[in-house]
Design a protein around this nucleic acid. Structure first.
Lengths: 351, 351
DNA sequence: CTGAAAGCGCTTACAG
DNA sequence: CTGAAAGCGCTTACAG
């Protein structure tokens, strides 16, 4: 029942007040529950008078259909979203885009945190599945491809930040190979030859079905080798701490890189910390770049050179594709976002 | 049904495969559904053999109870969380704490975005309510106090970042008055007298039931007046853009402040941008401070002086309190976090 | 200890 | 067009 209706029960007790149900509406309007259901769903087969009366009663009683109960038979109007982390910026920005897109629809997003462990992610996705969502948007899952294909067969699914050509779900992904190459090109144009990359472990994913960071590695390696430069990759995690550790490792080496390309902005922030702690000037002694163009990268004080992969637009597109699937589309769609270089102070030497 | 079971249906079709239900388990184990239910819930009144056999069958069939269906009669093991934004850092960090705390329990959090408009927030909270959550954690709601009290009477509820002594829900809140005073003290100790504050509108909330930012305003005003200093408050929003606009406004004034205290770190980042764009040096010409101690504040490049209000611990505490309420506690608990000053480069002049 | 029946709040065929 | 009945997957009394 709507909390806006005052409750006069005894203080301190939890109200036992019943929720207003479809039957209350039916009774009050003097029609059947089926009729009310049809009106709610804007289904065919109700007379204008019926519709009118029911609509009025719904308003009078301040009735809201119980999304959970609806989901047991039909649609719950709920979209489940898995992010690996709430506190790293990129995934939440994608979620924001999803939420924006869904705002125009009767659908509601619910977001859960999956972490980076495949089995925990799997439990999180199942937790959504068990809460009768109508569809799923999964960001950067490390779970096996077959498992995702099975999932996509059971429920409309869109996967973000994972490459390949799946058969039973859609993907929205940045052209990470191109993005990495753009960054290498940029760093080379600034005179660098010892360019290192911080990445994450592939999580056992290989071939075409890899997560964004692995594809960025490939793009980086290809671009380096095309110039006969030696790739230097350190794999930690996409986090401030992970970037910090990777940078510490790199800065200790004898052939210290003059540029560190972090696979994610959040890691680049940790790289910056390590570089500055080491008493090295950015960008004069070590240039630093990231990937994602999270909000903080553009702050003047940070001025992080990075690749914009349009987190919000990624979210909006995922939501749009998912709704199409919920409406019945089964052919897989692969949506590729075009990455854009954002040159800022951490790589551009002032003269 | 578990996506891990391979599906051999025709390619391109959505599987019509049935979910494994409690009845499948009952049938397979040769017992009643009630018995299976008791085992799942660890309820009393099952023989060891029964328990054994059912447990085995559940494992064999890879059965997971349907959280949605459970919620229709009993507990859904789901906790709903409302944040105003996914992309501003503070609320997601609180959500991270909630998720951490719940990780040890059978409960699962689901997070929705409520925005800053009270009616949209209300719809978001109702959306959670309608998805049979067992309890609610609401971060910084602008909705009227009576509405929240009614909500708390209907469902276990914890409200974060809102002051006052409610009767039907718990609160977890920083001592914002103290936090603001700590910051004014610090800025005064650095020699400032023209100290401005960026805040947000109170949203019509007054008296004791105000959101954190309004209480910070009060603490700031009291601290300023106690020193016979003139308060200067600009109200925009807690966002990078909001901080930027507030700072632009302040910097244009004839009695330009020498220190700007942003009510939230995210706004402080915008203040920094405005100050630097204006060609003023931080902290020599304008000192800048924030509130929250979000992760990025501690990055060397940012070095933002701020107040740590322990977002993660706030989340963990909220989750703990909520579980107590779900278990039956009805007396309201008010948990006050003690704020701590973090002095960094944006206010400390180097010599 | 065990299980058949009713019911949570909806929607879906299916009669009328 | 309208509504009675069955059912979604569980849990909750209530018999036995």
């Amino acid at each position: 029942m709507t909390p806006s209706t005052p409750n006069n029960g005894p203080t301190g007790d939890r109200a036992q007040r019943r929720r207003t149900t479809i039957h209350d509406v039916a009774l009050s309007a003097g029609v059947s529950a089926s009729a009310v259901s049809k009106v709610i769903r804007s289904a065919a087969g109700v007379s204008p008078q019926m519709r009118e009366r029911v609509t009025q009663t719904i308003a009078d009683l301040n009735y809201r259909p119980h999304a959970g109960a609806r989901g047991m038979r039909g649609t719950s109007f709920t979209v489940g979203v898995m992010v690996t982390d709430f506190s790293s910026p990129f995934h939440p920005e994608v979620a924001e885009g999803i939420s924006n897109q869904l705002d125009q629809t009767p659908f509601q997003e619910i977001v859960v945190r999956g972490g980076v462990d495949p089995s925990r992610q799997r439990r999180s996705i199942e937790a959504l599945f068990d809460r009768q969502v109508d569809g799923l948007i999964v960001i950067a899952p490390w779970t096996p491809q077959e498992w995702l294909e099975d999932l996509g067969r059971e429920i409309p699914t869109v996967v973000v930040a994972r490459h390949g050509a799946p058969r039973h779900f859609d993907t929205v992904v940045s052209d990470d190979n191109l993005g990495a190459r753009l960054m290498v090109d940029h760093l080379v144009s600034q005179g660098h030859t010892r360019i290192a990359l911080t990445s994450q472990p592939s999580g056992g994913l290989r071939g075409q079905y890899v997560l964004s960071h692995t594809e960025r590695e490939r793009g980086y390696e290809e671009a380096m080798r095309a110039r006969s430069l030696q790739p230097q990759i350190v794999r930690t995690t996409y986090s401030e701490e992970g970037g910090y550790r990777a940078a510490r490792d790199l800065l200790d080496r004898s052939n210290r890189p003059t540029a560190i390309f972090a696979g994610a902005d959040i890691a680049a922030l940790g790289v910056l910390r390590a570089v500055e702690e080491a008493g090295l000037r950015v960008p004069d002694e070590v240039a630093v770049a990231g990937y994602d163009d999270i909000a903080v990268a553009g702050i003047s004080r940070v001025g992080l050179t990075t690749i914009d992969q349009s987190a919000r637009e990624t979210g909006e597109t995922s939501a749009r594709l998912l709704l199409e699937r919920i409406e019945g589309r089964v052919d897989p769609v692969r949506y590729v976002m075009r990455p854009q270089l954002r040159e800022r102070a951490t790589t551009i030497k002032q003269r």
